[in-house]
């Protein structure tokens, strides 16, 4: 009897200890585990770009750049859904979109196109609403030079459907 009691006590203690640690693990993940989980979740997010995650006491802080507000909101939602995340601090910044392309007005574009075409006999072009439509015949080797010259004039588009190879 003297020996049995401590043994039972020891077993009870051991079970209690095991139970405590295992449930403890389930309830409280380490911040590093949560960070890794959030990072994995964000990687699956197609819109996220340069996001950094920091987790402290279950609070996930997101920083970095997102391409738009939708991406920012969606990253926050993704992070918040990760197990163990208590709350999300969204410090993501939305990058300014690049300025829209500058399209030349038709008049200066037309004269610039005429200047450029001087070097390419047999090629002519018209300009309308910023679109250069090229017609005629050209040596295949000269086509690239022609395109370099025309696309540098800030057109909306260069249409070469009417241009055939010599």
């Amino acid at each position: 009897m003297k020996l049995k009691l401590p043994r039972i006590l020891l077993m009870v203690c051991a079970i209690a200890l095991l139970g405590a640690t295992s449930t403890g693990c389930k309830k409280k993940q380490s911040d590093a585990d949560i960070k890794a989980a959030v990072e994995t979740a964000l990687k699956a997010e197609p819109m996220s770009t340069v996001t950094m995650v920091d987790v402290k006491d279950g609070v996930a802080t997101l920083s970095g750049e997102c391409k738009d507000d939708m991406c920012k909101a969606s990253c926050e939602k993704t992070a918040a859904a990760v197990k163990g995340v208590k709350s999300v601090v969204n410090n993501l910044t939305v990058v300014a979109p690049p300025p829209p392309p500058v399209i030349a007005a038709d008049d200066p574009l037309t004269s610039a196109v005429n200047d450029a075409l001087k070097a390419f006999s047999g090629v002519s072009a018209t300009v309308k609403d910023g679109i250069i439509s090229v017609t005629g015949k050209i040596a295949k080797a000269d086509r690239q030079k022609l395109m370099m010259a025309l696309q540098a004039l800030k057109p909306k588009k260069v249409d070469v459907a009417g241009l055939t190879n010599n």
Partner: peptide, 19 residues
């Protein structure tokens, strides 16, 4: 420009303006 020509032979698509 050589890559451009490789991807879009004869620059026929008209969907890129490269300057």
């Amino acid at each position: 420009w050589d890559l451009y020509e490789k991807i879009d032979p004869d620059y026929a698509s008209g969907d890129l303006v490269m300057n």
